[in-house]
Design a protein around this nucleic acid. Structure first.
Length: 641
DNA sequence: AAAACTCGGATACGCAAG
DNA sequence: CTTGCGTATCCGAGTTTT
């Protein structure tokens, strides 16, 4: 079972390299600087890796005046001079962009710091601003100011895993001018960071080496860990056995289970194919260019029902391990760097990218970051129709042979105009069944673009809401009636989970929670997560659901009532209401959450958006940081008790 | 307020050629 | 292995009409 030491691969999917950055779990509920991707295995470092290098830099080129590279804490060559000056620089002349300030303030950062960070980084470099703010919190242990009460971190000695790494750090809530002098540990940490070590690695190393370890011991430890990681990087061999040093592995280590077949030839064949596949995946998921994301092909995540069994195993970082379980979703084809940022905020867990075309008759490419086990998944039954013709039998009769689609494209919130289907009809009416190739091509292009189906001779149509309901795995009429107009139905559906896909991932919870679970559901929409759990037969005890759309809340609640749920549904209309205070009350009254699930708004991330595809900092999509915040707050509060 | 309509970009992939 | 070009995809936004 022992793999070749030099090939042993726990992290087939590393996307960062030997200079990973990515501290996490900082008491302030804020964490860390996102990973700085650099060259692979030290070899590809080259010119690309000089200096700070992630996507924000490219943005600067276009949108912002050039900023000095020192604006970034973790520069590669400049080796992490903390540019943050924790002193009291008076900042009366704040940036003009008050909107930006308030956005950061809403995220929980103190106003003064926001202003300072903006001054340091320039208004347009939001990534760097965020990083600076997080670094303030990391290095100064002053948690972002909460609008309401926040758990008292000074008692974090007893906190759960999430804060253990910094557990001896006192924090003085909200009083910036009243900062305690740095403790010895903090000083050491700061020193290591100044020396250029990633804060995350430094803090882990300090924990491992013990209280009174010397700097030399700690740096030795970090070097050893980095070498181990470099060795891992050579992996490409699927053989991996969990071993005693498992903890030392890259936290996001994911590996392939060893093949069981003993026949040499088959084994070798399998091996070759696997290596190839793995290499491709490894190389491409996040490349050194600052998060260019390339998705696994086929996009089957860590396994789909039609495969005999998942071929992937992974080890999660300690801090990511539940309770609670968490599950975060968003569109797979996000702009550069987005998934990398998401992942770096969520314990560097590799997103599971899945196209729901493997679960239904319609595509839906999504990434899921979660800490659920991967073994023993079971699909929702009955297996839904897998082709357009099975899903929409009435279309078969009119489907021209030259339209070769068997799967629909992604269901979106917008739908084709009647004008378009009219143009299509007219274009086809001039011919019999065999229009010229040019016309065929145009029609098919439009059909694909707008997900049209054939409902009559020469007649195409967009999907009806009830058809979308079943494609997405919802019960018929889930979104119908009760005062919900068609537009709202389509919008709610377009923004939803594909239930079968999510249920497949969540199915592992069934045996763990035979008596039901408590769910914190963020950005619930029309209740895809709950429908999935319900259809899996997992009783819902308490569901706290946050959803801003009134229509969606109504849809969800009427489903809840019509399915005679035994548990309690608490719905909240704004995620910002869910502060530490409220969470603590909810946790006390429910006994804690078993699952925190949600997909934050994608509209600033989705490829369909031509107007405001601003990435994670977009107006709506930045709510991801609330998912992150709430996850950490819940972990903290639950860890306390 | 809901429906209808117009607008049209970032990203990645496959392929051929250097 | 890299570069350039054509192609396919996409949980949308903004404005006008009903």
């Amino acid at each position: 079972m022992e793999g070749d030491p030099d090939k042993e691969g726990s992290d087939g999917f590393r996307w960062d390299s030997d200079e990973e950055e990515g501290p996490r779990n900082i008491p302030a509920l804020a964490c860390l600087s996102p990973i700085v991707p650099v060259g692979e295995d030290g070899a590809g470092g080259g010119e690309l890796s000089d200096g700070f290098h992630w996507d924000s830099e490219e943005e600067e080129d276009e949108k912002a005046p050039k900023l000095p590279s020192s604006s970034c804490l973790y520069s590669r060559d400049g080796v992490g001079k903390a540019v943050v000056d924790p002193g009291e620089a008076s900042s009366s002349a704040g940036p003009s962009n008050t909107k930006m300030i308030s956005e950061f303030v809403v995220m929980g950062f103190p106003r003064e710091r926001v202003i300072k960070a903006i001054e340091e980084n320039g208004e347009s470099n939001t990534e760097a601003i965020l990083e600076t703010l997080l670094t303030y919190s990391a290095l100064e242990e002053s948690p972002p100011e909460q609008k309401h009460a926040v758990p008292n971190l000074s008692s974090s000695e007893s906190a759960g895993d999430i804060f253990n790494e910094f557990s001896d750090v006192d924090s003085d809530l909200g009083t910036e001018e009243n900062m305690d002098p740095l403790s010895e540990k903090e000083n050491t940490l700061k020193l290591l960071v100044d020396m250029g070590y990633p804060i995350y690695e430094a803090s882990i190393a300090m924990d491992r080496c013990g209280e009174d370890a010397s700097i030399a011991e700690i740096t030795d430890f970090i070097c050893a860990a980095q070498m181990a990681k470099a060795a891992d990087a050579h992996l490409a061999e699927p053989t991996y056995s969990p071993s005693s040093d498992e903890e030392e592995r890259k936290p996001n280590g994911i590996c392939f289970a060893p093949p069981k077949n003993n026949k040499r030839r088959f084994f070798e064949e399998e091996e070759r194919r696997r290596r190839k596949r793995e290499k491709r995946f490894e190389k491409k998921v996040f490349d050194e260019d600052g998060g260019v994301l390339s998705l696994p092909k086929p996009m089957i995540g860590f396994g789909i029902p039609s495969e005999p069994r998942p071929i992937i195993r992974r080890t999660l970082p300690q801090a990511a391990i539940g309770p609670p379980y968490f599950y975060y979703e968003n569109v797979a084809l996000a702009p550069k760097g987005v998934w990398q940022t998401i992942s770096s905020f969520l314990y560097e867990i590799m997103p599971e990218f899945v196209d729901s075309k493997f679960f239904s008759a319609a595509a839906r490419k999504r990434g899921y970051v979660h800490n659920l086990p991967l073994e023993n998944r079971t699909p929702l039954l009955p297996i839904p129709p897998q082709t357009i013709h099975e899903a929409l039998p009435l279309t078969k009769k009119f489907w021209p042979h030259w339209d070769g689609r068997t799967k629909l494209n992604c269901v979106q919130t917008c739908t084709a105009s009647a004008k378009l289907t009219e143009r299509i009809r007219k274009a086809l009416e001039d011919y019999d069944d065999e229009p010229p190739l040019k016309v065929q091509k145009w029609v098919i292009d439009e059909c694909k673009k707008w997900n049209l189906v054939w409902v009559g001779r020469h007649k195409t149509a967009p999907l009806e809401p009830d058809e979308i309901e079943s494609l997405l795995g919802f019960p018929k009429n889930h979104t119908r009636g009760g005062g919900i107009c068609r537009t709202e139905r389509l919008k709610g559906l377009g923004n939803s989970f594909q239930v079968d896909t999510v249920a497949y991932h969540l199915s592992v919870l069934k045996d763990m929670f035979p008596n039901g679970i408590n769910v914190l559901s963020l950005f619930s929409g029309i209740g895809g997560a709950e429908v999935a759990l319900y259809r899996l037969g997992i009783p819902l005890k308490n569901v706290v659901s946050v959803e801003i759309s009134e229509s969606s809340r109504n849809i969800f609640r009427s489903w809840w009532e019509s399915t005679n749920q035994k548990g309690n549904l608490i719905d909240i209309n704004d995620v910002h209401l869910l502060d530490a205070n409220m969470l603590e009350k909810l946790i006390n009254s429910t006994g804690g959450f078993d699952l925190i699930i949600g997909g934050s708004p994608c509209n600033n991330i989705s490829g369909s958006n031509r107007v405001s595809r601003d990435g994670l900092e977009g107006k709506e999509s930045s709510l991801f940081f609330d998912y992150f915040r709430i996850l950490n707050q819940v972990k903290f509060i639950m860890g306390k008790s």
